[in-house]
Simulated assay, not measured.
Amino acid sequence: MPNTLAHLGVQTIATKAVDHTIDVKWIAVGCIIPDIPWIIQRIVHWLAPGVDFITLRAYTMVQASLFFCLLLSGALCLLACNKKILFLVLSGNSLLHLLLDSLQIKWANGVHLLAPFSWHLTSFGLFWPEHWATQALSLLGCIVLLFFAFSDRHQELDLVIKPLNTLFAGLLLLFYLAAPPLFMDGPFAADNHFIQTLRDQAARTGNTLAIDRGNYDPQTSTIQIFTGEKLHIHPMALAEKTKISLQGTFQDRNTVKVTAYHVHSSQRDLYSFVGIFTVLAIWLLAIFRKKSKVAQRK
């Protein structure tokens, strides 16, 4: 899927074209909302290696669906003065984010636009993350984000804390965090990301599989997947450790015959880290300026 910088570039321009007065800080939040579950999943991978990662993947898929993005958008907009406009900004950018994600080739992946009514993964698969278009959009995102961060620096945060609004925001946030297990049967039944295939190890033989961005080790001819499991793969002609996506068929419970593979670069992660930390910096500066103004008034 496009990295965070690419999302910020395209979505900021699109939103500003509709209404140039929309603060880039809120546009950026809308750009990141669909990725929040995936960011948290990565943190859990680092901090809690003993977690059941197949269940975690199902939870994350549910939470990253458009329906749950709308829930989080609703919770956040209740903390602002102009709630209707902000909800449109956040939800519209969440939808645009998911549509952009669906344009790139990502085996075993896609976006849930109609969940919980349908757990079909939407993926148009037009180009790989390493395509020159992604590189161009990443550069555009860096320029656009810095330009509008400077031009919108005097815009107020539009935050207002009222007891009733805060209560409803908290209830929506609680549902956003606690409700995904109620819907996790959907991704398993649809075998999204092949989680059902991977869970039922005894029935793997003969089943097809696709892996997105696994770590390949040429010394052991294995690929480490999101569960932490290492699958033996063949035939492979790569001589260096790298990230690959692959398609293949299980020959036994932990051996996969590869029918196609793609080598990835590490730039996508780098561009995403730069985009996320830039957005955090912009928000922290805005909050600091707001506190400074309050202090001066006192």
Rank of each mutant, 00 (worst) to 15 (best):
F53W: 09
T55D: 12
R57L: 12
A58E: 12
Y59I: 13
Y59G: 10
T60R: 07
M61G: 13
V62Y: 08
V62W: 07
V62N: 10
A64K: 11
A64Q: 14
F67W: 09
F68M: 14
F68S: 10
F68T: 08
F68W: 13
C69L: 11
L70Q: 05
L71D: 03
L72M: 15
S73T: 03
G74W: 04
A75C: 12
L76D: 02
L76Y: 02
C77Y: 01
L78S: 04
C81Y: 10
N82H: 13
K83T: 07
I85M: 13
F87H: 05
L88G: 15
L88F: 12
V89D: 11
V89S: 12
V89W: 13
L90G: 04
L90M: 06
S91C: 03
S91V: 00
G92C: 05
G92Y: 02
N93V: 03
N93K: 05
N93T: 01
L96D: 00
H97K: 07
L98W: 05
L100S: 05
L100C: 13
L100H: 09
L100R: 11
S102N: 05
L103A: 06
Q104S: 15
I105C: 02
I105F: 04
K106N: 15
K106Q: 14
A108H: 08
N109E: 11
V111W: 09
L113Y: 04
L114G: 00
L114W: 15
A115D: 03
P116C: 13
P116N: 13
F117L: 13
S118F: 08
W119E: 02
L121N: 03
L121W: 08
T122E: 04
S123I: 02
G125L: 03
G125V: 01
G125I: 00
P129T: 12
E130D: 15
E130C: 04
E130S: 14
E130F: 04
H131S: 07
H131K: 03
H131T: 06
T134F: 08
T134S: 15
Q135T: 12
A136W: 05
S138Q: 10
